[in-house]
Design a protein around this nucleic acid. Structure first.
Length: 425
RNA sequence: GGAGGGGUGGCAGAGUGGUUGAAUGCACUGGUCUUGAAAACCAGCGAGGGUGAAAGUCCUCCGUCGGUUCGAAUCCGACCUCCUCCGCCA
């Protein structure tokens, strides 16, 4: 959610900046709602003031044994007038709030212009596309041809499309990837490891801005009150500071967790239907930082670097891309995607997305820190990114480490987690 | 699942219908003292919002939502949540 004060005072400027994100801010609607709100709020509050002072006068009169019936008589009219105004004000404020909840974050100045992903800019590359002297296979072909490998049809029997069963060594490799990533982030990058609920409430999802706008992307459970499966560990990790006022000494907070993620993938019919690129359930090691506003730009660079290290240690060729305004997520001010080389497709595919949300999530969550200079609570900034997606990392390893025979070599960084196996067999 | 007891400011913890947005302690900030620090003493110190150039002023908030009342932290109802005991259980 954006700062209402900034919207009020710099409406034109905000509208201009949001244009980069292809969002059309309804200035007339905001102006109208604001004008009405102002009038109504003034009237309501002055009636409340009147009621309060009358009530106090009644209390005083009764304490002194005096007659208060004269004041009491006037209160009846005042009460119904107040009730009326209050209801109208509440309706108006709800209208304003629900509109504002649908307004995206302002993109950072260095975010490139552009309508879609074709305008994203390559920031840097690491390694070069793996060379093969033979015809490469894709990960599903490789995985299905292993004795103990990927079983898409079994998963379809158990559940439906967009799920996978991993058997034996592949399941172990998948687990090795998650252990490896967690170890690097906790031992070398200073993150605290968490094990969190995979089911969260509505307030958490509103805090990190999946709700109310993107309910269709979530799996909702039959439970009262509403429960949802997490689409990413960003939700539980970030919401740990919801409604908190943090001491500055504990900042920055650096949290990581390995969790499954659940996404309905509504609206992606026909996209990546084959293989494990796009699943309803996948695992991910997530990185979250809670920082002082002045440090958020630096923290985004740092966190993205932490995700890059994983790909480097796995010796997977990748490139770093900055998303253009049109491709930027709803709450993000700036996003870097890391794209890993997939030989079978001959393209780089997203394996991590690292974003700064500035104070957008913090405002929704009322996540604050006490600034010793002002003595006042101020909003923190939140940053998160995948470090990295495990299913996609498995895909990348299978494809980039394949040999002509169909054997898969184990990346050296993972050997310690795979009982020194040379090959996946 | 059953029985009982709680949820109040950054923390601890008073407060059971009327100048209580809230005693007290801790923490924090400023000052006095000190070569400096600590201690001691003095003063200040909740959050969100409206309005205003500012000083200020007004409104809302005591788990959440709703109700009773001229007036609710305080009474009533529902829900959430924590603790204790019993039962059950991976």
């Amino acid at each position: 959610m954006l700062d209402l004060k900034i919207i009020r005072t710099e409406l034109e400027d905000v509208a201009n900046k949001l244009r980069k994100k292809k969002f059309d801010l309804d200035k007339d609607k905001i102006n109208q709602l604001e004008a009405d709100r102002k009038d109504l709020q003034l009237e309501t509050e002055s009636l409340q003031n009147e009621r309060n002072s009358n009530s106090k006068a009644i209390g005083k009169a009764k304490a002194n044994g005096e007659d208060a019936s004269e004041i009491l008589k006037g209160m009846e009219v005042l009460k119904s007038k107040l009730e009326d105004k209050k209801q109208k004000l509440e309706k108006l404020q709800n209208e304003l709030k629900s509109y504002l909840l649908g307004v995206p974050n302002i993109p950072s100045d260095d975010v490139p212009e552009g309508n879609d992903e074709s305008y994203n800019k390559i920031v840097s590359s690491w390694g070069s596309p793996t060379e093969f002297g033979f015809g490469v296979k894709d990960h599903s072909e490789l995985g299905e041809s292993l004795d103990e490998g990927l079983e898409f049809s079994t998963a379809t029997k158990l559940t439906g499309s967009r799920f996978v069963v991993m058997r034996g060594k592949v399941a172990k490799l998948h687990r090795a990837l998650s252990q490896f990533m967690l170890d690097i982030h906790t031992l070398e990058h200073g993150y605290t490891e968490f094990n969190v609920p995979y089911i969260v409430n509505e307030a958490s999802l509103e805090g990190t801005s999946q709700l109310p706008k993107f309910e269709d992307d979530l799996f909702k459970l039959h439970h009262d009150p509403d429960y949802y499966l997490i689409p990413t560990a960003e939700v539980p990790l970030t919401n740990m500071v919801r409604n908190e006022i943090l001491q500055q000494e504990i900042l920055p907070l650096k949290y990581t967790a390995h969790t499954p993620c659940f996404r309905s993938e509504a609206g992606s019919y026909g996209k990546d239907t084959k293989g494990m690129i796009r699943q309803h359930q996948f695992e991910k090691v997530e990185l979250v930082q809670i920082v002082k506003p002045e440090n958020s730009e630096k923290a985004l660079e740092e966190l993205t670097g932490h995700a890059e290290i994983i790909l480097q240690k796995l010796e997977l060729p990748y490139r770093k891309v900055i998303l253009c305004g049109g491709d930027l997520g709803f709450g993000s001010a700036k996003t870097y995607d890391l794209e890993v080389w997939l030989p079978s497709q001959g393209v780089y595919r997203e394996i991590s997305s690292c974003s700064s949300f500035t104070d957008f999530q913090a405002r929704r969550m009322q996540a604050r820190w006490r600034n010793p200079d002002t003595g006042k609570p101020e909003l923190v900034h939140t940053i998160n990114g995948s470090g990295v997606a495990i299913g996609r990392a498995l895909v990348a390893v299978l494809e980039n480490y394949q040999e002509e025979s169909g054997r898969i070599r184990i990346p050296s960084a993972l050997k310690a987690y795979m009982h020194s196996m040379e090959y996946l067999e």
